[in-house]
Amino acid sequence: MATTQNLKRASAKQSTVALKYSMAVSGLIMVGYLILHMYGNLKAFAGPDSFNEYAEHLRTIGTPILPHEGLLWIVRVVLLAAVLMHAYAAITLWRRNKKAAGYVGNTRYQTKQNKAGIQRSYASFTMRWGGVTIALFIVFHILNLTTNDIHPGGRADTAYGKLHNTFENPWVWIAYVVAMIAVGFHLWHGFWSAFTTLGQNHSPTRSASVWNTAAIVIAVVLTIGFLAPPTAILFFGLGG
């Protein structure tokens, strides 16, 4: 009996480690995508023609070896797999942690743990709801700027036209700001956590870790970078 229980514990532990690794790797794949996506969005400052040329170039990269939009679809499939893997791992680990922490009737057993401890930050507390916010935003973002099924600022035929019309609407801009702040907090905790999971963090505290500093820089740069074009469109008439 003891041997069977030990095997079950070992199997559960290995499964948890695998989930953490898959969450870290899938998260880093998404960070790489976000950096490239932000770079593309900043093309808006070069003008409508430059932005539209960039958007069209994404669809022709690799041709004629690949079909039209071939590489773009490869990126989409890889990104979708990363998102699904990340979400599955996050939900599974959250359920296991909740069970292990001793929640009964949605209430945790009494603890004297310092909730403001070194290994916990505001970003880590908001990871779950931040993830939900980001997921909802991704759905809207795809329906709005990719498939053009939703066009709150009016329908447009060009990539820049879609971007410009969308963010002339102040309510869309507000929702976008909320989503990008959620992304920033998610990145702050997630980027550091990913490298910690992969065994690259050797600092005694989070605040002393170079990966924590890198996480803050990545989060700030991406948040500002993504907010810059919509803010310039709404408040400064970029491309108007």
Results as ranks from 00 to 15, higher is better:
97 N>Q: 15
217 V>C: 13
98 K>N: 04
10 A>F: 11
162 K>R: 15
194 A>H: 04
135 A>F: 14
221 V>F: 04
178 V>E: 03
226 F>V: 02
102 G>A: 04
111 T>C: 03
111 T>F: 05
38 M>D: 08
163 L>P: 00
167 F>I: 00
93 L>W: 07
51 F>S: 06
132 V>F: 11
27 G>D: 06
50 S>R: 11
188 W>L: 13
195 F>I: 01
190 G>Q: 08
58 L>A: 00
125 F>M: 15
99 K>W: 13
201 N>E: 14
104 V>Q: 14
9 R>I: 10
109 Y>H: 15
24 A>L: 05
35 I>G: 05
206 R>D: 03
91 I>P: 10
8 K>E: 14
70 G>Y: 01
18 A>N: 14
157 D>G: 11
63 T>P: 02
95 R>C: 11
210 V>Y: 09
16 T>M: 09
44 A>T: 03
147 T>F: 13
228 A>W: 00
35 I>Y: 01
226 F>P: 04
76 R>Y: 11
91 I>L: 12
208 A>I: 02
129 W>D: 05
130 G>I: 00
139 V>I: 15
196 T>R: 13
151 H>C: 00
211 W>Y: 07
164 H>G: 03
11 S>D: 15
8 K>N: 13
222 L>E: 04
168 E>R: 13
95 R>I: 15
95 R>W: 14
238 L>E: 06
31 V>L: 13
239 G>Q: 07
75 V>G: 05
84 L>K: 07
223 T>Q: 02
125 F>P: 05
13 K>A: 15
4 T>I: 12
5 Q>K: 14
97 N>W: 10
36 L>M: 13
19 L>R: 06
171 W>G: 10
52 N>F: 06
123 A>H: 04
193 S>A: 15
57 H>A: 14
130 G>K: 01
210 V>I: 14
180 M>K: 09
54 Y>L: 12
11 S>Y: 12
44 A>V: 01
129 W>C: 01
126 T>F: 09
24 A>W: 03
125 F>T: 12
210 V>W: 09
140 F>V: 01
152 P>G: 05
206 R>F: 04
136 L>G: 12
169 N>L: 07
137 F>W: 12
101 A>Q: 14
227 L>G: 08
19 L>V: 07
231 T>F: 07
232 A>I: 07
167 F>P: 08
207 S>P: 06
220 V>C: 10
21 Y>N: 14
26 S>Y: 04
204 P>N: 09
16 T>G: 10
185 F>M: 00
185 F>S: 00
86 H>A: 00
33 Y>L: 12
130 G>V: 03
115 K>T: 13
55 A>C: 09
31 V>G: 01
1 M>P: 08
138 I>G: 08
55 A>N: 06
117 G>R: 08
69 E>I: 04
64 P>F: 06
37 H>M: 10
67 P>C: 11
40 G>T: 11
170 P>T: 12
164 H>T: 06
229 P>M: 03
181 I>G: 02
146 T>N: 14
147 T>M: 15
60 T>D: 08
48 P>L: 02
178 V>L: 08
115 K>I: 11
167 F>S: 00
74 I>F: 13
225 G>D: 03
